[in-house]
Protein backbone atom coordinates (compact mmCIF):
# COMPACT_ATOMS: atom_id res chain seq x y z
CA UNK A 1 0.00 0.00 0.00
CA UNK A 2 1.35 3.43 -0.92
CA UNK A 3 1.38 5.86 1.99
CA UNK A 4 2.48 9.47 1.73
CA UNK A 5 2.99 12.43 4.00
CA UNK A 6 0.84 15.48 3.59
CA UNK A 7 1.32 18.84 5.33
CA UNK A 8 -2.01 20.39 4.52
CA UNK A 9 -5.23 18.56 3.66
CA UNK A 10 -6.36 21.44 1.44
CA UNK A 11 -3.37 20.75 -0.78
CA UNK A 12 -4.75 17.32 -1.67
CA UNK A 13 -8.25 18.69 -2.18
CA UNK A 14 -6.97 21.36 -4.52
CA UNK A 15 -5.05 18.77 -6.54
CA UNK A 16 -8.10 16.54 -6.89
CA UNK A 17 -10.23 19.56 -7.86
CA UNK A 18 -8.09 19.99 -10.98
CA UNK A 19 -9.67 16.91 -12.53
CA UNK A 20 -12.76 16.25 -10.41
CA UNK A 21 -15.79 17.99 -9.04
CA UNK A 22 -14.98 17.93 -5.33
CA UNK A 23 -17.61 17.86 -2.57
CA UNK A 24 -16.78 18.64 1.02
CA UNK A 25 -18.82 19.22 4.16
CA UNK A 26 -18.88 22.99 4.71
CA UNK A 27 -20.15 24.71 7.83
CA UNK A 28 -22.85 27.35 7.35
CA UNK A 29 -23.72 30.35 9.57
CA UNK A 30 -25.90 28.17 11.78
CA UNK A 31 -23.01 25.83 12.47
CA UNK A 32 -24.49 23.02 10.36
CA UNK A 33 -22.31 21.16 7.92
CA UNK A 34 -23.52 20.30 4.45
CA UNK A 35 -21.94 18.76 1.35
CA UNK A 36 -20.98 21.43 -1.15
CA UNK A 37 -18.89 21.63 -4.30
CA UNK A 38 -15.47 23.25 -3.86
CA UNK A 39 -13.70 24.63 -6.92
CA UNK A 40 -9.99 24.37 -7.64
CA UNK A 41 -8.24 27.28 -5.94
CA UNK A 42 -11.11 27.98 -3.55
CA UNK A 43 -9.97 28.83 -0.02
CA UNK A 44 -12.19 26.86 2.34
CA UNK A 45 -10.66 25.39 5.44
CA UNK A 46 -11.09 21.68 5.99
CA UNK A 47 -12.38 20.79 9.44
CA UNK A 48 -11.65 17.27 10.67
CA UNK A 49 -13.84 15.45 13.20
CA UNK A 50 -17.14 16.83 12.06
CA UNK A 51 -20.24 14.81 11.39
CA UNK A 52 -22.19 16.71 8.76
CA UNK A 53 -25.91 17.12 9.42
CA UNK A 54 -26.65 14.95 6.39
CA UNK A 55 -24.63 12.04 5.09
CA UNK A 56 -23.41 12.02 1.48
CA UNK A 57 -26.27 9.59 0.67
CA UNK A 58 -28.07 12.00 -1.64
CA UNK A 59 -24.99 12.36 -3.84
CA UNK A 60 -25.65 8.78 -5.00
CA UNK A 61 -29.28 8.06 -4.18
CA UNK A 62 -30.93 11.32 -5.05
CA UNK A 63 -33.74 12.66 -2.89
CA UNK A 64 -35.73 13.20 -6.07
CA UNK A 65 -34.74 12.24 -9.57
CA UNK A 66 -36.11 11.59 -13.01
CA UNK A 67 -36.08 8.00 -14.20
CA UNK A 68 -37.44 8.29 -17.73
CA UNK A 69 -39.62 10.36 -20.02
CA UNK A 70 -42.56 9.24 -22.12
CA UNK A 71 -43.21 11.31 -25.24
CA UNK A 72 -46.57 9.75 -26.09
CA UNK A 73 -45.00 6.88 -27.99
CA UNK A 74 -41.71 5.81 -26.46
CA UNK A 75 -40.07 5.63 -23.04
CA UNK A 76 -36.53 7.01 -22.79
CA UNK A 77 -34.29 6.43 -19.77
CA UNK A 78 -32.80 9.60 -18.25
CA UNK A 79 -29.56 8.63 -16.49
CA UNK A 80 -27.73 11.28 -14.46
CA UNK A 81 -24.77 12.72 -16.32
CA UNK A 82 -21.68 14.26 -14.81
CA UNK A 83 -17.93 13.97 -14.88
CA UNK A 84 -15.63 12.44 -12.27
CA UNK A 85 -16.34 13.44 -8.69
CA UNK A 86 -14.63 13.28 -5.31
CA UNK A 87 -16.41 13.17 -1.98
CA UNK A 88 -13.76 14.58 0.28
CA UNK A 89 -13.31 13.92 3.98
CA UNK A 90 -15.93 11.25 4.64
CA UNK A 91 -15.88 9.64 8.06
CA UNK A 92 -15.93 5.90 8.66
CA UNK A 93 -19.62 5.60 9.53
CA UNK A 94 -20.72 7.32 6.32
CA UNK A 95 -18.26 5.30 4.23
CA UNK A 96 -19.58 2.11 5.79
CA UNK A 97 -23.09 3.25 4.86
CA UNK A 98 -21.98 3.91 1.27
CA UNK A 99 -20.59 0.41 0.97
CA UNK A 100 -23.87 -0.92 2.39
CA UNK A 101 -25.82 1.07 -0.20
CA UNK A 102 -23.40 -0.09 -2.91
CA UNK A 103 -24.66 -3.59 -2.18
CA UNK A 104 -28.32 -2.70 -2.09
CA UNK A 105 -28.15 -0.61 -5.27
CA UNK A 106 -25.59 -2.80 -7.05
CA UNK A 107 -27.86 -3.18 -10.08
CA UNK A 108 -29.55 0.24 -9.93
CA UNK A 109 -28.58 2.21 -13.06
CA UNK A 110 -29.15 5.67 -11.54
CA UNK A 111 -27.18 4.99 -8.37
CA UNK A 112 -24.36 3.31 -10.27
CA UNK A 113 -24.12 6.10 -12.86
CA UNK A 114 -23.14 8.40 -10.00
CA UNK A 115 -21.21 5.92 -7.91
CA UNK A 116 -18.93 4.72 -10.67
CA UNK A 117 -17.79 8.30 -11.31
CA UNK A 118 -16.97 8.93 -7.68
CA UNK A 119 -13.75 8.70 -5.72
CA UNK A 120 -14.09 8.49 -1.93
CA UNK A 121 -11.60 10.23 0.35
CA UNK A 122 -12.06 9.00 3.90
CA UNK A 123 -10.77 10.43 7.14
CA UNK A 124 -10.17 8.75 10.49
CA UNK A 125 -12.01 10.22 13.46
CA UNK A 126 -9.86 11.02 16.47
CA UNK A 127 -12.68 11.60 18.92
CA UNK A 128 -16.24 10.29 19.20
CA UNK A 129 -18.85 12.62 17.74
CA UNK A 130 -21.94 13.64 19.66
CA UNK A 131 -24.21 10.59 19.89
CA UNK A 132 -22.04 8.47 17.61
CA UNK A 133 -21.47 4.79 18.42
CA UNK A 134 -19.76 3.53 15.26
CA UNK A 135 -17.42 1.42 17.38
CA UNK A 136 -20.32 -0.68 18.71
CA UNK A 137 -21.52 -1.62 15.21
CA UNK A 138 -18.13 -2.12 13.56
CA UNK A 139 -18.35 1.03 11.43
CA UNK A 140 -15.58 3.23 12.85
CA UNK A 141 -13.98 5.34 14.17
CA UNK A 142 -11.25 4.41 11.68
CA UNK A 143 -11.80 3.89 7.97
CA UNK A 144 -11.39 0.35 6.68
CA UNK A 145 -9.23 0.00 3.57
CA UNK A 146 -11.91 -1.50 1.35
CA UNK A 147 -14.48 1.28 1.75
CA UNK A 148 -12.44 4.28 0.56
CA UNK A 149 -10.04 5.07 -2.27
CA UNK A 150 -7.86 7.40 -0.20
CA UNK A 151 -7.68 7.61 3.59
CA UNK A 152 -6.39 10.51 5.67
CA UNK A 153 -5.10 9.83 9.15
CA UNK A 154 -3.51 12.45 11.41
CA UNK A 155 0.12 12.39 12.44
CA UNK A 156 0.71 12.65 16.19
CA UNK A 157 0.02 16.18 17.36
CA UNK A 158 2.48 18.28 19.30
CA UNK A 159 0.95 20.41 22.04
CA UNK A 160 -2.50 19.87 20.53
CA UNK A 161 -1.32 21.20 17.16
CA UNK A 162 -1.79 19.01 14.11
CA UNK A 163 1.56 18.29 12.50
CA UNK A 164 0.32 16.85 9.23
CA UNK A 165 -1.39 13.83 7.72
CA UNK A 166 -0.67 10.45 6.31
CA UNK A 167 -2.35 9.76 3.01
CA UNK A 168 -3.10 6.08 2.45
CA UNK A 169 -3.85 4.93 -1.09
CA UNK A 170 -6.23 2.08 -0.44
CA UNK A 171 -7.39 1.42 -4.02
CA UNK A 172 -5.97 1.55 -7.53
CA UNK A 173 -8.26 4.47 -8.34
CA UNK A 174 -6.95 6.32 -5.28
CA UNK A 175 -3.35 5.70 -6.29
CA UNK A 176 -4.03 6.90 -9.82
CA UNK A 177 -5.73 10.05 -8.57
CA UNK A 178 -2.64 11.24 -6.67
CA UNK A 179 -0.03 10.12 -9.17
CA UNK A 180 1.83 13.17 -10.39
CA UNK A 181 1.29 14.98 -7.11
CA UNK A 182 4.44 16.07 -5.32
CA UNK A 183 4.32 13.81 -2.25
CA UNK A 184 6.86 12.37 0.18
CA UNK A 185 6.73 8.64 0.88
CA UNK A 186 5.94 7.95 4.54
CA UNK A 187 8.25 5.80 6.64
CA UNK A 188 6.84 2.64 8.16
CA UNK A 189 5.97 4.18 11.52
CA UNK A 190 2.58 5.36 10.25
CA UNK A 191 0.73 2.12 10.89
CA UNK A 192 1.68 1.77 14.54
CA UNK A 193 0.82 5.43 15.19
CA UNK A 194 -2.52 4.92 13.48
CA UNK A 195 -3.23 1.83 15.54
CA UNK A 196 -2.42 3.64 18.76
CA UNK A 197 -4.63 6.52 17.74
CA UNK A 198 -7.49 4.10 17.09
CA UNK A 199 -7.19 2.54 20.53
CA UNK A 200 -7.15 5.96 22.17
CA UNK A 201 -10.21 7.09 20.28
CA UNK A 202 -12.13 3.90 20.94
CA UNK A 203 -11.48 4.24 24.66
CA UNK A 204 -13.20 7.61 24.65
CA UNK A 205 -16.62 6.32 23.54
CA UNK A 206 -19.42 6.43 26.08
CA UNK A 207 -20.98 3.24 27.39
CA UNK A 208 -22.85 1.26 24.74
CA UNK A 209 -24.50 -1.24 27.08
CA UNK A 210 -27.99 -0.13 25.99
CA UNK A 211 -27.08 -0.62 22.32
CA UNK A 212 -25.70 -4.10 22.84
CA UNK A 213 -28.65 -5.12 25.04
CA UNK A 214 -31.14 -3.61 22.62
CA UNK A 215 -29.65 -5.51 19.69
CA UNK A 216 -29.86 -8.72 21.69
CA UNK A 217 -33.46 -8.13 22.64
CA UNK A 218 -34.50 -7.32 19.07
CA UNK A 219 -32.90 -10.51 17.83
CA UNK A 220 -34.37 -12.59 20.61
CA UNK A 221 -37.73 -11.04 19.63
CA UNK A 222 -38.07 -10.28 23.29
CA UNK A 223 -39.68 -6.87 22.81
CA UNK A 224 -43.45 -7.19 23.22
CA UNK A 225 -45.72 -5.78 20.52
CA UNK A 226 -47.38 -3.54 23.09
CA UNK A 227 -44.08 -1.83 23.83
CA UNK A 228 -43.44 -1.15 20.13
CA UNK A 229 -46.94 0.21 19.91
CA UNK A 230 -46.39 2.43 22.96
CA UNK A 231 -43.04 3.69 21.64
CA UNK A 232 -44.56 4.32 18.25
CA UNK A 233 -46.97 6.83 19.77
CA UNK A 234 -44.00 9.15 20.15
CA UNK A 235 -43.28 9.03 16.41
CA UNK A 236 -45.00 11.88 14.56
CA UNK A 237 -44.23 10.31 11.14
CA UNK A 238 -41.98 13.17 10.06
CA UNK A 239 -39.62 10.60 8.43
CA UNK A 240 -36.65 12.72 9.51
CA UNK A 241 -34.81 9.59 10.65
CA UNK A 242 -35.15 7.90 7.26
CA UNK A 243 -34.08 11.06 5.46
CA UNK A 244 -30.96 11.45 7.56
CA UNK A 245 -30.17 7.77 7.99
CA UNK A 246 -27.33 7.00 5.60
CA UNK A 247 -28.52 3.42 5.05
CA UNK A 248 -32.25 4.03 4.44
CA UNK A 249 -32.92 3.30 0.80
CA UNK A 250 -36.68 3.15 0.28
CA UNK A 251 -38.34 5.16 -2.43
CA UNK A 252 -41.70 5.79 -4.06
CA UNK A 253 -42.41 6.79 -7.64
CA UNK A 254 -44.66 9.42 -9.17
CA UNK A 255 -45.51 10.72 -12.62
CA UNK A 256 -45.29 14.42 -13.43
CA UNK A 257 -46.26 16.24 -16.61
CA UNK A 258 -43.53 18.26 -18.36
CA UNK A 259 -44.72 20.11 -21.46
CA UNK A 260 -46.17 17.38 -23.63
CA UNK A 261 -44.06 14.69 -21.97
CA UNK A 262 -44.58 12.62 -18.88
CA UNK A 263 -41.69 12.12 -16.48
CA UNK A 264 -41.45 9.29 -13.93
CA UNK A 265 -39.66 10.41 -10.79
CA UNK A 266 -38.56 8.57 -7.74
CA UNK A 267 -38.47 10.19 -4.32
CA UNK A 268 -37.29 9.07 -0.90
CA UNK A 269 -39.89 7.26 1.16
CA UNK A 270 -39.97 5.85 4.67
CA UNK A 271 -41.30 2.63 6.15
CA UNK A 272 -42.51 4.65 9.13
CA UNK A 273 -45.22 6.33 7.05
CA UNK A 274 -48.67 4.84 7.54
CA UNK A 275 -49.33 4.46 3.80
CA UNK A 276 -46.00 2.79 3.00
CA UNK A 277 -47.48 -0.67 2.48
CA UNK A 278 -51.07 0.34 1.85
CA UNK A 279 -52.46 -1.48 -1.15
CA UNK A 280 -54.94 -0.07 -3.61
CA UNK A 281 -57.67 -2.20 -2.03
CA UNK A 282 -57.12 -0.46 1.30
CA UNK A 283 -55.47 -3.51 2.86
CA UNK A 284 -52.45 -2.42 4.89
CA UNK A 285 -50.12 -5.01 6.43
CA UNK A 286 -48.30 -2.23 8.33
CA UNK A 287 -51.34 -0.31 9.52
CA UNK A 288 -50.26 -0.46 13.16
CA UNK A 289 -47.69 2.13 14.20
CA UNK A 290 -45.92 -0.39 16.43
CA UNK A 291 -45.39 -2.70 13.49
CA UNK A 292 -43.75 0.09 11.53
CA UNK A 293 -41.51 1.09 14.41
CA UNK A 294 -40.45 -2.52 14.84
CA UNK A 295 -39.82 -2.69 11.09
CA UNK A 296 -37.43 0.24 11.15
CA UNK A 297 -35.30 -1.16 13.95
CA UNK A 298 -35.52 -4.72 12.66
CA UNK A 299 -34.01 -3.50 9.39
CA UNK A 300 -31.20 -1.78 11.30
CA UNK A 301 -30.31 -4.45 13.84
CA UNK A 302 -31.61 -7.87 12.83
CA UNK A 303 -29.19 -10.75 12.31
CA UNK A 304 -31.49 -11.76 9.42
CA UNK A 305 -30.12 -8.76 7.55
CA UNK A 306 -26.56 -9.40 8.70
CA UNK A 307 -26.82 -12.74 6.92
CA UNK A 308 -27.93 -10.95 3.75
CA UNK A 309 -25.90 -7.75 3.82
CA UNK A 310 -22.81 -8.78 5.75
CA UNK A 311 -23.38 -6.27 8.56
CA UNK A 312 -25.98 -4.40 10.60
CA UNK A 313 -28.10 -1.84 8.79
CA UNK A 314 -27.08 0.77 11.37
CA UNK A 315 -23.65 2.39 11.18
CA UNK A 316 -23.93 4.22 14.48
CA UNK A 317 -23.90 7.79 13.20
CA UNK A 318 -26.48 8.92 15.76
CA UNK A 319 -28.31 11.22 13.34
CA UNK A 320 -31.74 9.71 14.00
CA UNK A 321 -31.34 10.55 17.69
CA UNK A 322 -30.44 14.16 17.08
CA UNK A 323 -33.20 14.75 14.54
CA UNK A 324 -36.14 13.02 16.21
CA UNK A 325 -38.66 15.51 17.59
CA UNK A 326 -40.31 12.68 19.55
CA UNK A 327 -37.93 10.47 21.46
CA UNK A 328 -37.54 7.41 19.31
CA UNK A 329 -34.03 7.95 17.94
CA UNK A 330 -31.54 5.16 18.34
CA UNK A 331 -30.34 5.88 21.90
CA UNK A 332 -33.81 6.54 23.30
CA UNK A 333 -35.22 3.42 21.66
CA UNK A 334 -32.41 1.11 22.63
CA UNK A 335 -32.47 2.47 26.18
CA UNK A 336 -36.20 1.76 26.45
CA UNK A 337 -36.19 -1.68 24.90
CA UNK A 338 -33.13 -2.86 26.78
CA UNK A 339 -34.78 -1.90 30.07
CA UNK A 340 -38.19 -3.32 29.16
Amino acid sequence: MNVYELDRIEHLRDWLALSHQVYQAVENDLGNCNWQPIEHGEVVKFKPNVRPLVSPKSLFFSEQENMFVFDGEKFRETLPEHGPRVIFGVSACDLTAISYQDKHFRKDPYYQARRQQTLLVGIDCTKPCDGGFCRSVDAGPHVKDEIADLILTPMPSIGGENTGWWLICSSDAGRAAVSGMDLRRADSSWSSWREMNRRHTEAEFKSDVHIINGIQRINARAVPDELWERLAHQCISCSGCSQLCPTCSCYATRDVAEDTNMVRQRVWDSCLMVGFQKEASGANPAAEAGRRMYRYWYHKFSEDYVAQMGRYGCVGCGRCESTCPGSVGVHSIMEKISNA
Partner: peptide
Protein backbone atom coordinates in the same frame (compact mmCIF):
# COMPACT_ATOMS: atom_id res chain seq x y z
CA UNK B 1 -48.79 -13.02 -1.78
CA UNK B 2 -49.67 -9.49 -2.69
CA UNK B 3 -47.81 -6.46 -1.38
CA UNK B 4 -47.63 -2.91 -2.53
CA UNK B 5 -44.88 -2.67 -5.15
CA UNK B 6 -43.12 0.32 -6.65
CA UNK B 7 -40.24 -1.34 -8.49
CA UNK B 8 -40.66 -5.11 -8.80
CA UNK B 9 -36.91 -5.67 -8.59
CA UNK B 10 -35.93 -5.44 -4.93
CA UNK B 11 -35.00 -1.76 -4.73
CA UNK B 12 -37.87 0.38 -3.44
CA UNK B 13 -38.43 -1.55 -0.20
CA UNK B 14 -42.22 -1.39 -0.20
CA UNK B 15 -43.04 -5.08 -0.50
CA UNK B 16 -41.16 -6.33 2.58
CA UNK B 17 -42.16 -9.28 4.72
CA UNK B 18 -39.48 -9.55 7.42
CA UNK B 19 -36.17 -9.74 5.54
Amino acid sequence: LERRMHCGVGLCGHCYVAN
